[in-house]
Every structure is written in C-alpha cells, then in structure tokens.
Design a protein around this nucleic acid. Structure first.
Length: 154
DNA sequence: GCCAACGTTGGC
DNA sequence: GCCAACGTTGGC
C-alpha cells in the first residue's frame, strides 16, 4: 500500500463536500498538471491511502483520510465542453488527463494544520514535499514513515 | 490583494 | 532546444 497527499481548495471541493457525497466517494477529477497526472495514471493504486489537504484557504492543512477505491482512469471532464476542466486538446482516443476515485474514511478533527506540520519540518517531516518551498504539486507521494507520524498527531 | 515560485506556451 | 512572456498556485 502506498500513501499520498491530495490537495483541494475547499471553495471548490471540501472534505465536508466529500462527507456528503454518495458513498462518501468522488472522482478526483480536474488535475491538469503532467507530473500529478503521471502519479494518478501510473502510481496511485486501489487500496492506497491519502491525506485530504485543504489549500488556498484560511487554515491550510490535513482535514481527512481517504482510501483510493478506483485506480487511474481517463478523466471524462477533459472531454466535456461544458466542464470548467474541459481541455480541447485532449482526445477521447488518447486521453490526456486521468482521475482516481477516493472514499472518505474519516475526517481529521481538528485538522492538522500546515503550521502544525511545519513544527516537525526539521525532523520527522524533513522531506515532506508539501512543506517544501514553492511546491505546487496537487498530488504528492507520502512515505510510510511520514504517514504514520502524521497519524500519530491525532 | 500581493508576490514568489513554478509550469506551459510559443517565437525564434 | 532556448528562453521570455505569461498564467497558475498557494501562503500570507
């Protein structure tokens, strides 16, 4: 089993939205970055776990634990002209963008804030990608050690 | 709203 | 292939 950190802007889609979704499950569509796409397409597997992370908001941080319930498959919003994620250069015969399905296991309450994560940035979370300056990747791998350490905070 | 950091685009 | 211009991300 592998571990991931998945960013979402709560104004677009929050952990509360996921809690209300049917089966507490959603397609993680809309990722339009090649490095993140490659993770979704090639590396994120069914049964993997992820941190649901709120970004671009008042209190950024880990707000939930999700389980990957479906591995990478083509993101159909890229083909939908009415979708805000429409990509006219993507073609159905050769899908450019991928998504996975995630199910909420539990909320993390209270959230593990970015500040709290940073408090460990010189030791346990020294290599945590989300704490690196300038990091903008919306899907990042998390090591088993980082995963277990962060879980131990709640 | 600001701005640093980074990714993408497109002319050459 | 280079790189300047531009757009986006995301913390503050």
């Amino acid at each position: 089993m592998k571990y991931w950190l998945l960013k979402s802007e709560p104004e677009t889609f929050s952990v509360e939205d996921l809690a209300k979704a049917r089966n507490r499950t959603t397609s993680w569509h809309g990722v339009r970055n090649y490095q993140a796409r490659n993770f979704l397409r090639d590396d994120v597997g069914k049964g993997d776990r992820g941190f649901f992370y709120h970004s671009s908001c008042a209190v950024p941080g880990v707000v939930g634990i999700v389980k990957i319930v479906r591995a990478g498959y083509p993101d159909s919003t890229a083909e939908d002209p009415r979708s805000e994620y429409f990509d006219p250069s993507s073609e159905r015969s050769e899908p450019r963008w991928y998504t996975v399905d995630v199910q909420l296991e539990r909320k993390v309450e209270p959230p593990i804030t970015l500040d709290e994560l940073r408090a460990h940035a010189s030791r346990e979370l020294k290599n945590m990608l989300v704490l690196k300056r300038g990091n903008r990747l919306s899907v990042t791998p998390v090591t088993r050690e980082e995963w277990q350490f962060i879980l131990s905070l709640r």
